[in-house]
């Protein structure tokens, strides 16, 4: 089910980038990773990073602390980034809809920054990591209960090629 969602999102993203310079984001979640995702079996591919390692970590309500599970994912993200130095990343922080708009922008920034700091601690060069917060503006799951909210409270590491444009 989750795989299907991701696949659909990526198709949507390719379509979007094809028809316009969509300045809304990246925030189709990893979708801005350029069209060439490669194979999930190729450990140097962005597809491998996004799906096998996992491009996102999730947070508790109104929190930006990293759970042990999140730290596990970020350890692998750091390792991947350290061996695939052609890539930089933008870390997108997001919040669920239970909060006021501007607070959620700040909360998303805190989450993105928390991931950024962790990756830097794990050896990723600071110049390769940027952050941006979308607050509650770009939910991934759109229902109004915890099953969706927990997917929306996320920080997504979006790979970019080039030296941190």
């Amino acid at each position: 089910m989750k795989k299907t969602t991701i696949a659909l999102l990526m198709i949507g993203a390719v379509a979007l980038s094809a028809c316009s310079r969509d300045r809304y984001n990246s925030a189709t979640d990893g979708a801005n990773n350029s069209g060439v995702a490669g194979s999930v079996n190729d450990p140097t591919s962005t597809a491998y990073f996004n799906q096998t390692i996992g491009d996102r970590v999730l947070f508790m309500v109104d929190q930006s602390t990293l759970s042990p599970q999140a730290q596990g994912i970020l350890d692998q993200q750091a390792q991947w980034l350290n061996s695939n130095t052609a890539y930089s990343a933008i870390i997108e922080g997001h919040a669920d809809e239970q909060g006021t708009r501007e607070y959620n922008v700040a909360l998303g920034a805190r989450r993105a920054s928390s991931v950024q700091s962790y990756l830097i601690e794990r050896g990723v060069a600071p110049g390769r990591l940027k952050t941006v917060s979308y607050g509650k503006e770009r939910p991934l799951a759109i229902c109004s209960d915890e099953s969706c909210y927990q997917q929306n409270r996320r920080a997504v590491t979006v790979l970019t090629t080039g030296a941190g444009t």
Partner: peptide, 25 residues
């Protein structure tokens, strides 16, 4: 074309401040 948030009128009503993601940030 760009995500934008929370406009505010000036007291005289001639200008608006707002936040936009035009540059990505």
């Amino acid at each position: 074309e760009s995500l934008l948030l929370a406009p505010r009128f000036s007291k005289s009503g001639d200008r608006v401040l707002y936040t936009s993601y035009e540059t990505g940030q």
